[in-house]
């Protein structure tokens, strides 16, 4: 546990040291949303609003997570992984990516509302909706961090990341979209109970798989 916290703080420090990466992600999100604004102006249809927001977050998360094993390509890796337990490494990376995605998706939501209008969230349950975004950040991070590790090992990082990641992320996206669609339509949380359970089951399975399998991936 201590080790995870330690690795997590190291990730945060590395991130702060390389602020341009984070700024790059923010700029990426902003420009995607701006392009959406140029093509739609205002979205009133809930299904389109919901789907487009998730697509923006999905692409932002591919960008954010795709580089999570890149940053330290140098000999530092070797140094780190002889000292730290690989299981703590993957857990700390999942947590760190989840935090980054929470931040990114919250920001994306604000920019999205600013540019594309609030017509679609007129009768939404915002607490439930934002909860969905946070939950989604955890889901995306847990499924994609491991994929990012696999892609980094295969050499061709970003291309392989998209190839491996998109099919793997489909179940998570299906559940998340149906969850936030319910929240947007103003349905009570009871109707989302099933989506929540499924989400936790998938996240739990993926995180425990990552936990078990990462040591095999790491050993070079």
């Amino acid at each position: 546990m201590n080790e995870i916290l330690h690795l997590l703080s190291r990730e945060v420090q590395a991130e702060l040291r390389q602020k341009h990466v984070l700024w790059g992600l923010l700029l990426y999100t902003l420009s995607t949303i701006f392009v959406c604004y140029l093509s739609f102006e205002v979205i009133e249809d809930q299904a389109v609003w919901n789907g487009l927001l998730w697509i923006i977050i999905l692409f932002a998360s591919f960008n954010a997570i795709g580089r999570s094993f890149d940053r330290e390509r140098t000999g530092y890796n070797l140094y780190l992984y002889t000292l730290a337990n690989p299981k703590s490494v993957i857990l700390s990376k999942i947590i760190f990516n989840a935090l980054v995605l929470m931040f990114l998706s919250g920001l994306a939501l604000l920019l999205y509302l600013l540019f594309l209008g609030t017509a679609a969230i007129a009768d939404a349950r915002m607490m439930q909706f934002v909860g969905g975004l946070l939950l989604g950040s955890i889901g995306l991070s847990s499924a994609l961090t491991m994929i990012s590790g696999i892609a980094a090992k295969s050499g061709n990082n970003m291309g392989m990341m998209a190839l491996l990641g998109f099919p793997i992320i489909i179940p998570t996206m299906l559940i998340l979209m149906s969850y936030t669609a319910n929240a947007l339509a103003g349905k009570p949380i009871d109707e989302n109970a099933q989506n929540l359970v499924l989400m936790f089951v998938i996240d739990g399975a993926v995180i425990s798989l990552s936990y078990i399998l990462f040591p095999y991936l790491w050993r070079d």
Partner: peptide, 24 residues
Amino acid sequence: KRGRIAAVYNIFAFVMLVVLLMIL
């Protein structure tokens, strides 16, 4: 290296298959 990485992904893929075709 190929064997190891592919095996890790394959185990992932099978769990996703069960989720996609049997649970969802």
